[in-house]
């Protein structure tokens, strides 16, 4: 006699099925690796997006500075006054430059001397352009010591370069982390 079990008996067995089962292997470690990879990727994408306006701003500043230095009219000063001012302006520019270099160095040391080559080429070029603009202003200031606007521009450029480095640092260090993960 082959008597089949009833619908009710089957339903009762279904209701008794456990809601949970324990997987044999540890699944979390794989999940963790995958989501860390994703977080890293989305972080890099968002950082790239955040850096884009900064890069544009840096390029614009560099372009304005180069244009200013190239085309600004040189004030006509009498030769003795020029000679007198040359020494003091050079000193001032040197002092500003020294301060800037010290701040930059201190910042890089505090970040553990990050490798600039980790930055995308575009970012590296923009940093180089900003540095070139700074040097051009320093040079122009030596010839045009009385130009207060140029001095302000130099101070502004120093600050912009430091700000940019500060914002680029997490990007540089995260690149390292990503490489380690890979």
């Amino acid at each position: 006699m082959n008597e089949q079990i009833s619908d009710q008996a089957l339903a009762s067995q279904v209701n008794k099925l456990p809601k949970e089962m324990q997987p044999e292997r540890d699944l979390w470690s794989g999940i963790e690796r995958a989501i860390q990879g994703q977080s890293q990727q989305s972080y890099n994408e968002s950082t790239k997006n955040n850096l884009a306006p900064m890069a544009w701003a840096a390029s614009l500043i560099a372009a304005v500075l180069v244009a200013w230095v190239s085309f600004a009219p040189t004030p006509q000063l009498s030769t003795p006054l020029m000679a007198k001012n040359e020494g003091t302006t050079e000193q001032l520019v040197n002092t500003m430059q020294t301060n800037f270099q010290q701040q930059k160095q201190a910042m890089l040391v505090s970040y553990g001397q990050p490798d600039m080559t980790n930055l995308p080429i575009k970012m590296q070029n923009q940093l180089i352009e900003l540095a070139q603009a700074r040097k051009a202003i320093e040079k122009a200031l030596i010839n045009d010591g009385n130009n207060v606007d140029l001095l302000n521009l130099l101070r502004f450029t120093h600050q912009q370069e430091l700000n940019l480095l500060q914002k680029l640092y997490p990007y540089m260090s995260n690149k390292n982390v990503q490489w380690q993960t890979i």
Binding site: K19, M21, Q22, P23, E24, L27
Partner: peptide
């Protein structure tokens, strides 16, 4: 929740290894 998720994966796939992979 992973035990419940795994149980559903196992019942639908009827294979331990696939269920573990899909649960992840």
């Amino acid at each position: 929740h992973h035990r419940q998720v795994y149980a559903l994966c196992w019942r639908m796939l009827a294979d331990k290894d696939s269920a573990e992979d899909v649960c992840q």
